[in-house]
Each structure stands twice: as C-alpha cells, then as structure tokens.
C-alpha cells in the first residue's frame, strides 16, 4: 500500500497536499495541507458556506480538485483511474448527511448491499455481519424496516452501520447530528465513540454541532471562508482556550465548557 512514501513507512490515513478546491473558476479553499493519523477522530469545522462539505466530497473522491493531491492510506484518489478509485473507495465508509439509504431496500438489504456487490461472502455470512453492524448501532430488530419507516436518528445510525459494512479503517460522517434533537444527538455521539472503540477506525466528521465536537473529537481543523483555508488546527478544548485566532476562540466558546452529557439546547 505504502508504495510511494519511503519517508513515512506508516502512511497517514488521510493526507492532503497543496489542495485547492472550488467550482469552475471560483476557488473555495486554497492550498490546504494536513495529515490525519490513523485512529483519530477529526472534525472539519467552519462557518456555513466555508466549503467543509465540499472538502469532504473531494476527499472521498466525488469531485476532482482544481490542484493538489489527496492520499487515502497512501494512495492518491485524485490521479487514480476508475478501477483503482473504486478500490480506494472500498477502504472507507461514508455516512451521508441525510443517511442516503436506498428507499427501495429495507434496512438489512441496505447494509448488505456493499457486501453483496463488492465481496464474495456467502448469504449466511452477510446475514451474520449485517446483524453485527446493526447491533453496533443499536438497531437490531429493525432489519425488515424500510427507510421511510425509520426516524431521523435511526436513519443516521443505519447510515453508520452501512458505512461500517465492509469493516473499513476510515470513516467519514457528514453532519451526523444535524437536524436531530439533543438527546438523539447525544446518543449518536455515544455510538460514534463506541464505533471507534470497537473498530479502532479513523473518523473524519464534518459538523458544526459544538457539543458533539467537544464530546467526540480529538482534533478540530477549523476552516474559514474569508481565508479560504485552515485557520487553526488542534484539540477542541485547546483551541477554544488558546487559539491565536480570535474567530476560532469565539466560535468554539459558543459551545460552552462542558465535555459530555450536555442538555444544552440545540444550536441556533
């Protein structure tokens, strides 16, 4: 796997080099550089419209960047051809903002889909793994439910389960707790921590739910629309208290001082 980086025998889970992204001639984020080491939970944070979701979609290979390179486990997803790209993609799982469950399939089928399509596992094996994943997100017993019958929180958890289907070592969660009530949001955070504990996966999230960030994130990468780049990078508590940038401090202070089990009302 680590064929291209002799200096780093253990490649970063994600490495972004000189990345510029945008639409057409409009540059949204310019000249980004960061590494995410295996096992971390990293949150991409930033105000609305700063391009954090766009960044995520570039990292998972849906969009082509204007410049620069993105390495997933040491392999470039930018320069990969169609087949290699699919191979890289099979190494990570993505839980989308709205869940993106296939509405024509029930919950179990949704989670089984990547297994059916990309592995040679037998039916029995798939069934076993599906119930494992559902147990991990506390959804066992809902196998036959259609996505339309599930609540928002359940859909998010089902999306986590599907992202975990192929036991990836890298997970991407896009706005996992957006639009959920605080209690459900709490529960999702717990699920995320459990997932990390059980799978030792690297997790990259995009969110601006401050309580959730303080609860789960090891590291925050703060983006700014004005600077078109990273303003600061560090653990959330450290940045809140010691960031050189006032914007970062103010932004993170809005999240309060708690670390967990908050009953603070939802963000504005």
């Amino acid at each position: 796997m680590a064929d291209n980086n002799a200096a780093n025998p253990a490649p970063a889970a994600i490495e972004v080099r000189d990345l510029s992204i945008g639409y057409g001639s409009r540059v949204v984020l310019d000249n980004l550089n960061f590494r995410i080491e295996p096992g971390q939970i990293v949150t991409i944070l930033g105000g609305s419209g700063c391009g954090k979701s766009t960044l995520l979609k570039h990292i998972i290979g849906l969009y082509k960047p204007l410049r620069g390179d993105i390495l997933i486990n040491g392999r470039s997803i930018v320069t990969a051809d169609e087949q290699e790209k699919r191979s890289i993609m099979s190494e990570f799982g993505v839980a989308y903002q709205g869940g993106a469950l296939f509405r024509s399939l029930n919950l179990a089928e949704n989670i089984a889909l990547p297994m059916e399509e990309l592995t040679n596992w037998t039916r029995a094996e798939i069934r076993k793994r599906v119930s494992e994943k559902l147990a991990l997100v506390h959804l066992n017993g809902f196998e036959k439910y259609m996505p339309s019958d599930l609540s928002g929180g359940m859909i998010k958890r089902a999306a986590f389960a599907r992202a975990l289907a192929l036991d990836p070592k890298l997970l991407f969660f896009d706005e996992p707790s957006a639009g959920l009530d605080p209690l459900t949001s709490d529960m999702l955070d717990k699920v995320i921590l459990e997932i990390r504990e059980k799978t030792h996966a690297t997790i990259m999230m995009v969110t601006h739910e401050l309580p959730s960030i303080f609860r789960v994130s090891d590291r925050v990468i703060m983006l700014s629309a004005e600077k078109k780049g990273i303003v600061d990078d560090g653990s959330p508590a450290y940045l809140r208290d010691h960031s050189a940038d006032e914007y970062v401090r103010t932004f993170l202070s809005r999240g309060g001082t708690y670390k967990s089990n908050s009953t603070e009302p939802d963000h504005a």
């Binding site: 979609k57 993609m89 099979s90 990570f92 993505v94 989308y96 993106a100 990547p114 399509e117 990309l118």
Partner: peptide, 8 residues
Amino acid sequence: DALRTMGI
C-alpha cells in the same frame, strides 16, 4: 454519491 463511494 453513496453508491459511488461504495464503489458501485
């Protein structure tokens, strides 16, 4: 997008 990132 989900399909694509699943490699399907």
